[in-house]
Nucleic acid binder design. Structure first.
Lengths: 208, 208
DNA sequence: ATCGACATACCAACTGGTCGGTAGTATATA
DNA sequence: TATATACTACCGACCAGTTGGTATGTCGAT
């Protein structure tokens, strides 16, 4: 079922949907861009809505992998939960620093302003991924709070969600300003906030 | 030129566009929802793209007004630039606390994932408004930095942009989770960060 | 008599989706 | 080894409904 053609359709569709939106991406244009035919499309997807579902599923899986690989890498570098977060933020920072051109953004955000795509199933996938990010960060924050008393009583789940919020918001601004530097700038502010919440470097600069 | 019918069209269109997206909002459905006819629509707008432009223009004007009125109110309450920011954040907090149901979100964010709407003109409007927010916050932060030495050397423009980033990102999460509480939570985290940057209340809680 | 503010009928282009067909390959059978 | 069978992957003509947009007309106020 999962052939190269199916992946080609999904790749092409993701690019088109992220830039023009789902409704504005016609199947005619999609199959033309992918260099295939209507028949091929409907061989792999039973409807356009089915494509939308497959797109979020795949995007969510990639996003999940990115999250776990980043934290996996961080865990191999340090056992300190707070440092792990900083390393993960550093990984994303490096990524956006090496990017040029407008970031393509997040499919979840694209979907959330197109209500026909917010089916129960798609919402479960999106919120499931947001929950994974929340858990990954909150887990480290909760462990860190025992090491750094400054964070006692802080809303650590909200702090964890703020990572996602920062990404989604920064994508919006990076897209309108056509500048990936916004991503780096906001990433650094989020990092700074986390440092301050845990009572790290009250004023000076410190690199992990 | 600006009659009640034109406003009705814009009101209806804004609601529809914020929930379903621009491309998915057909003129047939728009005029039916507004209870008018195609003739009325094309009497006020020369094309659908023209509607898109009028929508951002109006949204930007309302947003501008919201910004200046909020800071105007804050200025009447205190001369301290940092407290002004906290009051403004408090105003928005009150607003989202009194809201029930999913927030409708920001038209700018909706536009930024639909490239056909990102014309030079629309981008100028959107970025113009983002700049206004940046200036309003950054102006207070720069003045505050002279009063609170802890903030010396901080990226105050980025900190100002973070307000917009937080709103846009929180809208995304609030929409997928159908919960305006996300807005309040993230607003509080942003406030907390600002406090920490300026060396305010290192641990305890303080209400303005 | 003119004009702004709509209403109605209509159109060509495009939309998502269907359907009969076919080329190639794997498997079964004689 | 030759042939029949079956199946996957894909093609492309076609369709009914919808799309943004237009042309013409109506009607009340000035």
């Amino acid at each position: 079922m999962t052939t190269a053609t199916r992946e080609l359709i999904l790749d092409t569709a993701q690019t088109l949907v992220l830039s023009r939106g789902f409704a504005a991406t016609s199947l005619d244009h999609l199959v033309e861009t992918a260099g295939i035919t209507k028949g091929a499309f409907f061989h792999y997807f039973k409807s356009k809505a089915d494509l939308a579902e497959a797109l979020v599923e795949r995007f969510a899986a990639q996003d999940m992998k990115l999250l776990s690989e980043s934290f996996g890498q961080a865990e191999r570098m340090t056992a300190d939960p707070l440092q792990q977060v900083f390393i993960v933020l550093g990984i994303f920072q490096n990524f956006f620093e090496s990017q040029e051109g407008t970031p393509s953004g997040c499919l979840f955000a694209s979907y959330c302003y197109q209500s026909e795509l917010l089916t129960e199933k798609n919402l479960r996938i999106i919120n499931g991924n947001f929950a994974l990010w929340r858990e990954a960060f909150a887990d480290r924050y909760e462990r860190a709070a025992k090491l750094y008393p400054a964070a006692q009583g802080a809303d650590l789940k909200g702090l964890a969600d703020m990572a996602t919020v920062m990404f989604e918001g920064a994508f919006v601004m990076a897209k309108t300003q056509r500048d990936p530097a916004v991503m780096v700038q906001q990433l650094l502010h989020y990092r700074r906030y986390v440092e301050l919440v845990f009572g790290q470097r009250p004023a000076a600069t410190q690199v992990h």
